[in-house]
Design a protein around this nucleic acid. Structure first.
Length: 112
DNA sequence: CCGGTGACGCGCG
DNA sequence: GCGCGCGCCACCG
């Protein structure tokens, strides 16, 4: 690792409430790494088994409200089940309505 | 050093 | 709404 970027990303993901989802780009911005959505995916991919339990990685989806496909197929279904278990609904196109389930970061310095 | 590769996002047509 | 291209950037041969 270069620095504590992964740590920062994981700590942001830990703040996503149960039953809500955040996008990769959103996590990146909150973590102070604007325009580095890809790194968020990388950080989650590199999530060690040990810490995985304390990081709700399933709550991170892409800006289209969909679960991003990854190298190992099948983990998508796992992610979806975990989210549905906490109340997140998917439409017929396997999409989550971000207006309803998107994480609303409570901040005072956030523009618009 | 270089080039290929992503759990991505956005602007365009 | 959809596909495509390009920007971004850490990693890994």
């Amino acid at each position: 690792m270069g620095d504590g970027s992964y740590q920062r990303i994981w700590s942001v993901v830990r703040r996503i409430p149960r039953g809500r989802v955040a996008t990769y780009g959103q996590v990146a911005r909150v973590a102070g790494l604007p325009r580095q959505a890809r790194m968020v995916g990388y950080a989650l991919h590199a999530l060690p088994e040990q810490v995985a339990g304390s990081v709700p990685w399933q709550r991170v989806i892409n800006a289209q409200g969909r679960i991003s496909a990854r190298a190992f197929p099948g983990s998508e279904a796992v992610q979806r089940r975990l989210l549905e278990r906490e109340g997140v609904a998917f439409d017929r196109r396997d999409r989550v309505d971000l207006d309803r389930f998107g994480w609303r970061v409570r901040t005072r310095s956030r523009r618009a």
